[in-house]
Each structure stands twice: as structure tokens, then as C-alpha cells.
């Protein structure tokens, strides 16, 4: 749920990066954190397990400038992708306004991608949200692996697996170098903010 503060003239939206374990969600946020000007981003909060696996979530608050006089504040969250953390993913999804689904291109992870997207759909349904009606983009990450001997999925296969019913914009990315990271962020921010603005700011300001 977005928070619209008419007093301070701020809009707060929550965007969640979702996807199977190790697909690169945290890496996306780390790149945004490292690249963005301090004026436009806050502190990054991460709760790691011992390795680099997300245990609970990461949070990066961004300040994206003004729309119709309102300051746009976005909070980027990642969920823990590991299968066993379903309950935690549900907690993080609470109040979500927009979603980036990050897919892993490794052929061995093909089923995991599909399972994770299906899990997302179910978790949203439990909160009475419909994935098909929400601002969503897909990111096909780790495209650098395509040029290695490791078996990877083609973009057409990923589309077939994940974007058949969704039909949302997709971005190829290499989160470790930042390729595609800001393109993904820009599109999901635009969609999320437009969605909230259409509901509240452009329609006589009635809740």
C-alpha cells in the first residue's frame, strides 16, 4: 500500500525484488546503492545470513524527485529467495505496490524460476492482490553467463516460461556490472508511481 502524505506532500511506495535464491536481487540493490548520488538514496539495510544469502530482507530507500508537486519516495525491498523462507517472503510482500521479478538464466534453475513466480502469485492472492493487475517487470539477470560454457536459457525460453500470461516489459541484465539495473528500476518506478498517482493524485485527491 502506498502512503500519500498530503501534509508533507510525499508519496511513499514499496517495490519488492522477488525471485529464486541467488538470482541476483541483492546485487541489484547493491549496484543502485553504490551508483546513486547520496542525495537520492538513503542507507541500505541488509540482514544477511552468514554467507551472502538474504535471511530476511534488504531495504534501500530512494528519493526520486517530484511529480505534480509531490516528493516521490520509493523503498526497494528484496525477499530471501531460498525455498524455506516462504513465511518471510510473505511478510516482506505486505503492502507491496510494485514488483520486479528477477529470473536466473541457468538452465538448471528453470523450474525454480517458474516455481518462484507461481509462489509470488499465490502469496499475493492471499493478500487479495492480483499479480496480473499490478505494476510488474521481469529482469533476466546474469546474461554474462550466456557467453560461457554454462548451459543457460534463451530469452525466448524465459519469455515462454515466465511472461506468457503476464506480458510485461522484460530487461536483460548483468547485475554484477550494473547492465540493465537502472533500466529495470526506471520502468518499475514509473509504472508503480503512475499507478498510485492515477488512483490518488490525479483524481480529485479522494482516497
Amino acid at each position: 500500500m502506498a502512503l500519500i502524505d498530503l501534509n508533507k506532500k510525499e508519496v511513499h511506495c514499496k517495490i519488492v525484488y522477488y525471485g529464486p535464491g541467488r538470482c541476483g536481487k541483492t546485487t541489484n540493490l547493491l549496484h543502485i546503492y553504490a551508483t546513486m548520488n547520496e542525495q537520492h538514496r538513503g542507507k541500505m539495510l541488509t540482514i544477511d545470513t552468514k554467507g551472502d544469502r538474504t535471511l530476511f530482507f534488504d531495504l534501500l530507500p530512494l528519493n526520486l524527485g517530484k511529480i505534480s508537486g509531490f516528493d516521490i519516495r520509493i523503498q526497494l525491498y528484496t525477499v530471501p529467495g531460498q525455498v524455506m523462507y516462504e513465511a518471510t517472503r510473505k511478510l516482506v510482500l505486505k503492502g507491496v505496490d510494485g514488483l520486479v521479478f528477477v529470473a536466473d538464466p541457468l538452465r538448471v534453475r528453470q523450474a525454480r524460476n517458474i516455481e518462484s513466480l507461481e509462489g509470488l502469485r499465490q502469496n499475493l492472492l492471499e493478500m487479495h492482490l492480483n499479480l496480473d493487475a499490478m505494476p510488474v517487470v521481469l529482469q533476466y539477470n546474469k546474461r554474462d553467463l550466456v557467453d560461457t560454457p554454462i548451459p543457460t536459457l534463451t530469452v525466448a525460453e524465459l519469455d515462454q516460461d515466465l511472461n506468457q500470461t503476464l506480458k510485461v516489459p522484460t530487461f536483460e541484465a548483468v547485475a554484477t556490472t550494473g547492465l540493465g539495473v537502472f533500466e529495470t528500476l526506471k520502468e518499475i518506478s514509473k509504472r508503480t508511481v503512475t499507478n498510485v498517482a492515477n488512483k490518488h493524485l490525479l483524481s480529485g485527491r479522494k482516497p
Binding site: M1, I4, L6, K94, M127
Partner: peptide
């Protein structure tokens, strides 16, 4: 959860 609109009065 519905979106929350905060007015100066509420705050």
C-alpha cells in the same frame, strides 16, 4: 491493504 492517505488533520 488499501493505500493510506494522510492529511494534515490526521497527522
Amino acid at each position: 491493504m488499501a493505500d493510506l492517505v494522510l492529511t494534515a488533520e490526521i497527522q
